[in-house]
């Protein structure tokens, strides 16, 4: 019964997309003025940040069908680049965020060149290896990253002489970043590049045989998605004021992936819901200290069970069973 109501809401949303988007934007804009509770605002900022991060992963997973389970590496690279630069040089935070995004993107280029030709799950493994190598390097390279101590004292961002230090300030910062990202992504998805991506996702071999330079498009896709992950990381550095390798463990990568799957892959809206649900859920159960993680794990299992295509019904990838193995 409740499931049917849920389905009806989803269909209604899908039919009147523009109206709901407009509504959502209005609600989000009003939120910090209506809510005084700083804790709720803090969670709201984190939620938008995770939406940004999972959206950036969704571009990679949902649109070219590349399984990236090491996305946390680019988040970490963005965060550490921002922390390192901002604590050593006096640069405007907008420039720092941009640089961080590009650095993350660059690393994905280095990773992608040798590995993108690997199929599905093999590529996934290399991303996993890369994520762990990144984390361990951060921990060991003490002269650059201060190793396990992390980098504290990330300066407060300033613009036009105004110090952006409150939750409300950061809220609007991440809102703008997210808005830009979604807008840009929407435009790209609906362009020739986006169509190339989707054709790669649907059937890479067919697409290649039609003359699409799949490698070039896959690299572009990877670099685009990881750029925004780096931006998200840089934002995190400023918001938290402190970065440490503890925040960039493999669990986070799985979390992003879960957000994408739970929300629904291959749609722009999917990660919005997925990111929101999986960020807010642990907070709801915070008073159950010991059982918090149990509930979290079970929740993920339940959602995937009842809606394997994701809450907003993106497409799932059916396993390719038509191929037979040559022995």
């Amino acid at each position: 019964m409740a499931a049917n109501i849920f389905e009806k809401i989803i269909t209604n949303i899908n039919k009147n997309k523009l109206k709901y988007i407009f509504l959502l934007i209005i609600v989000l804009l009003i939120l910090p003025f209506v809510v005084e509770n700083q804790y709720v605002l803090h969670i709201a900022v984190l939620t938008l940040m995770y939406v940004l991060l999972s959206s950036s992963l969704n571009v990679i997973v949902g649109y070219t069908g590349q399984y990236n389970i090491g996305h946390v590496a680019f988040y970490a690279i963005g965060a550490y680049t921002a922390a390192i630069i901002s604590t050593r040089f006096n640069l405007n935070f907008i420039i720092v965020i941009l640089i961080s995004g590009f650095v993350a993107s660059l690393f994905s280029l280095m990773l992608g060149i040798p590995t993108l030709r690997l199929r599905g799950i093999f590529f996934a493994f290399t991303t996993l290896g890369f994520a762990e190598i990144t984390r361990l390097t951060i921990l060991n390279w003490r002269s650059l990253t201060r190793g396990p101590f992390g980098i504290p004292g990330v300066p407060i961002p300033q613009i036009f002489g105004m110090r952006l230090s409150t939750n409300t300030h950061f809220y609007f910062m991440i809102f703008i970043l997210l808005f830009l990202m979604l807008l840009m992504t929407y435009r790209i998805i609906n362009s020739r590049v986006g169509r190339a991506w989707i054709s790669i996702r649907e059937d890479e071999q067919a697409s290649a045989s039609m003359g699409v330079d799949t490698f070039k498009y896959k690299i572009m896709n990877l670099m685009y998605g990881t750029f925004w992950a780096g931006v998200g990381g840089a934002f995190f550095a400023y918001f938290a004021g402190y970065v440490s390798a503890d925040s960039f463990i493999l669990d986070e990568s799985f979390r992003f992936f879960a957000m994408v799957l739970v929300g629904g892959t291959g749609t722009l809206a999917g990660p919005i819901l997925g990111g929101a649900v999986l960020t807010i859920l642990p907070q709801v159960f915070r008073s159950f200290a010991r059982y918090q993680m149990i509930i979290y794990g079970v929740a993920i299992l339940l959602i995937i069970h009842y809606k394997p295509e994701g809450l907003l019904g993106g497409r799932t990838f059916k396993r390719d069973l038509s191929e037979s193995e040559d022995n």
């Binding site: 996934a124 992936f257 993680m293 979290y296 299992l301 995937i304 394997p308 799932t316 059916k318 396993r319």
Partner: peptide
């Protein structure tokens, strides 16, 4: 069981979720 015809990546998340659950349950 439910995901035999689905993409393997779904199994990744179910096992990750299950692992989180099992670890905390074991601790308790």
């Amino acid at each position: 069981e439910k995901f035999r015809k689905e993409a393997r990546m779904l199994m990744l998340i179910t096992t990750v979720g299950f692992g989180i659950f099992l670890r905390s349950a074991s601790q308790i």
